[in-house]
């Protein structure tokens, strides 16, 4: 049984440790709006804020070049930082980059590794809680869109997606549809229909 739950709503009658819940002696309660899967005892958030974890891919825009350090807007409560000595030479203020999170530092900034510049294309912003669905299990969903539209897609777990080439408008619509319908079943088939027969000849 799956059901939509909201903060404060009881999901289990005993205190158990489940991500996105809190518990007291009387039970376990949702702390975000989400889909609760009773069989698997997991709460999948329907909305939410990205929390940086080591190894996450993010997409950001360079806000400031401080010489030894780049300051990068990563669509989060924290600033992204990248040391310039390890960079490709040509990254500067205003550039769009993809990078990997090293860690969240004490001062509330996120250290980034291996920033690479993304040339051209366009960005779209989605709710970070919908990113897993957009990727699909084993990349299946994003691969389906990419193959169908001929668009190159890089997904930042911070909710920013970079698209380039092919039928970008259809790829965008497909991603926005997944965002809206992430909690429904049969989504893979609907997206397949949407992007098939659109491949650039």
């Amino acid at each position: 049984m799956q059901k939509i739950v909201v903060p404060g709503e009881k999901v289990v009658n005993t205190p158990v440790r489940i991500e996105n819940t809190i518990s007291d002696k009387n039970g376990t309660y949702a702390c975000v709006i989400g889909f609760f899967d009773d069989a698997r005892k997991i709460l999948i958030p329907l909305e939410g804020v990205w929390q940086p974890r080591s190894g996450d891919t993010v997409i950001g825009i360079v806000e400031e070049d401080k010489g030894t350090m780049l300051i990068i807007n990563i669509n989060a409560p924290y600033k992204g930082l990248a040391l310039t000595k390890f960079l490709e030479a040509d990254i500067t203020t205003g550039d769009t980059i993809a990078a990997t999170v090293k860690d969240l530092e004490k001062g509330g900034s996120v250290m980034l590794l291996k920033p690479t510049k993304l040339q051209g294309g366009k960005l779209i912003s989605v709710s970070p809680s919908k990113i897993p669905r957009i990727i699909g299990s084993g990349n299946s969903m994003v691969k389906q869109i990419s193959d169908g539209t001929g668009t190159k897609i890089i997904i930042g777990l911070n909710g920013i997606i970079w698209l380039s080439g092919g039928k970008m408008d259809i790829a965008t619509s497909a991603i926005l549809k997944i965002q809206e319908e992430a909690h429904t079943s049969g989504l893979t088939d609907r997206i397949k229909k949407m992007v098939s027969n659109t491949k650039v000849q």
Partner: peptide, 11 residues
């Protein structure tokens, strides 16, 4: 801060 996803070049 939210990222501005639309660039001047794109517009």
């Amino acid at each position: 801060m939210k990222i501005r996803t639309i660039t001047e070049d794109y517009i």
